[in-house]
């Protein structure tokens, strides 16, 4: 656990997970629409470890965009919908550190209703659920590429969980891990910040891209695809960085699985 995290967000992991208990997928809107392969990989990972998966189809969004923009009244409406949908589920798993931080940390700030706070604390980031709750240390994935890891700031600092993605990533076989210089630095996405202060956001992204190039990796992996949407957008804009791909950690953790399933 990162000792200097802002606040170690309380999570509802007591009583401990009992084998056979189902997990509800919370698939953030941009993953649902633009990166469905991440959601598929998430479902496969959970199934692999014997976790029955349910996907409440009425789910929409965690309310973070409005919350971070200051529109808490509007955000609350979406948060309440989230809670209505996920109330029956004991374990909620989400392949995004940022959306998980919204549920676990910021629900309380947006709406101190104990029902809302309680449901928010049942949300787990995927690698955190695999590593801390299920005790997975190696998914048996094979990924023969030069890859680097960027851990999103919300997961790292609001949830204090840089360990699980790092450990699971390092366990991947055949991969050349190229450590990212200044890895703990923000990529500059920041949600609406990216379009409210575009020049500053881009300058921060350029710094991140320079570090990715310095790492020598061909693939940038993260547990937050929102960072990757921004980083990948910059990478693809320029001919000299176009070849560098972005991938979510869930996709890497199932890489090379086909033949054994």
């Amino acid at each position: 656990m990162n000792q200097s995290a802002i606040s170690v967000a309380p999570r509802q992991d007591d009583p401990p997970y009992r084998p056979g208990e189902p997990a509800a997928l919370f698939i953030p809107c941009y993953i649902d629409q633009f990166y469905p392969s991440i959601a598929r990989a998430t479902a496969r990972l959970l199934k692999r470890y014997g976790v029955p998966v349910v996907y409440p189809t009425a789910q929409t969004c965690c309310g973070q965009p409005a919350f971070n923009s200051g529109y808490w009244e509007e955000s609350r409406r979406v948060i309440r919908h989230f809670c209505d949908v996920f109330e029956p589920h004991r374990w909620i798993v989400c392949p995004s550190g940022s959306c998980t931080a919204m549920c676990r940390v910021f629900f309380e700030q947006a709406d101190p209703d104990p029902r809302i706070v309680g449901i928010g604390r049942r949300v787990f980031e995927l690698t955190e659920f695999l590593h801390d709750i299920l005790g997975v240390t190696d998914t048996g994935a094979t990924f023969p590429h030069k890859a680097t890891l960027h851990i999103g700031c919300h997961g790292r600092r609001e949830l204090g969980m840089a360990g699980p993605p790092q450990k699971l990533f390092e366990s991947v076989r055949g991969m050349t891990y190229c450590p990212l210089p200044d890895m703990e630095e923000c990529c500059g996405f920041g949600g609406t910040f990216s379009v409210k202060m575009p020049g500053t956001s881009l300058a921060m992204g350029e710094t991140k891209v320079q570090n990715i190039v310095r790492s020598g990796a061909d693939v940038v992996v993260s547990n937050d695809v929102s960072c990757l949407m921004h980083i990948g957008g910059i990478l693809r804009r320029k001919p000299e960085t176009k070849h560098i791909r972005t991938m979510h950690i869930a996709e890497v953790l199932v890489a090379g699985w086909e033949e054994r399933e």
Binding site: Y30, I31, P36, R40, V53, V54, Y55, T57, G233, R236
Partner: peptide, 24 residues
């Protein structure tokens, strides 16, 4: 300074509808 994300095929919901019996 950024490209927009590529729009892939059907969203996750569609895939889930067809494959959910393997996971539920």
């Amino acid at each position: 300074g950024r490209e927009l994300p590529e729009v892939p095929g059907p969203d996750f919901r569609h895939w889930w509808k067809r494959n959910k019996n393997k996971y539920e």
